[in-house]
Amino acid sequence: MALAALALTVIVFALTNLQPNLEKLARTQASTRMSDAEVASWLARNGYDRPMLIRYSEWLGVVPAWRGEDGTGGRCNTDPAPRFCGVLQGNWGWSTRFQGEVSAILGDRLAATGRLMFWVMLVMIPAALTLGILAGMREGSRIDRALSTVAITTTATPEYVSGVLLIALLASTQAGLSPLLTDLGLIDRPTLFLGNARSAATEPTFWNLALPVATIALAGMGYIARMTRASMAEVMAQPYIRTARLKGLPFRDIVLRHALRNALIAPFTVIMLQFPWLLNGVVITEVLFSYPGFGWTLVEAAGNNDIDLLLACSVVAVVLVLATQLISDLGYVWLNPRIRVR
């Protein structure tokens, strides 16, 4: 796992430090109309002209940090400057896009995304589980057919489509429900919900956060619901459920007390593995609603070739992915005694 994370940072480092990318960085940082010779001298002055492997080791913190000719510049600009100044020493570097410490910026943005995801989980998991259980309870029934169609539709709708649909339906002054409600005098704003969630990062309200939350939850919900349905349908076909039925227990008790607990083991893994998959959706949704969270930062960093910030973002993303894989494996064993005995 640590090896995978290391390999990924090497790849990101190599790709962001390609010569054309560095030249672009130089032009955006200094002046867009620099000549090639000026670009080369800018890169040399800021230490970008040395071998990639050495600079990567510096970033990691296993090689002494680089200093400019006059003893300033480079990663750590404190006085006295520490000898090593890399990620291993807890220094994530300087963001050229936002002009600030990467750790501070990323901390803020991750907290914002955390708040968003908290609401997403709070909406998505109960809704998906209910949907799946209702559908899987009586396999092949009309309710099952209808709910399965809903689940397929939500999985087939990427965030940039559902987000656009939700905005058009609920947050547009021209179309959807808002003009209707304004005419009837039911709302005192021009639109029912806000199509821009920038304000939600500082003061989240129901009106500015509802649409981003709904967008992410809708996209993630279908898959969990389908897994829950499959697992529930399988459990309902087990002999012990038949026994309970033959005993004459009410259907409600069978579902709630006998089937539910066993049916929830498989969806747990799915929910955990959904985290990294949701990450893509979070990036798209945050950009669509301009919510300044982790995903929005990632796009900004990538668009401006902000090397340190991009590396930090990818470390966070990769750790998240690998950690959820680990947790889902452990959680599966913990929830399912049958594996432990073996």
Binding site: I11, N21, N280, L298, S314
Partner: peptide
């Protein structure tokens, strides 16, 4: 394990 979007931003650019 790579976040797909990040990979696209690194692999699909005029610079690359």
């Amino acid at each position: 394990a790579f976040p797909g979007i990040l990979l696209f931003f690194l692999l699909v650019t005029p610079e690359i």
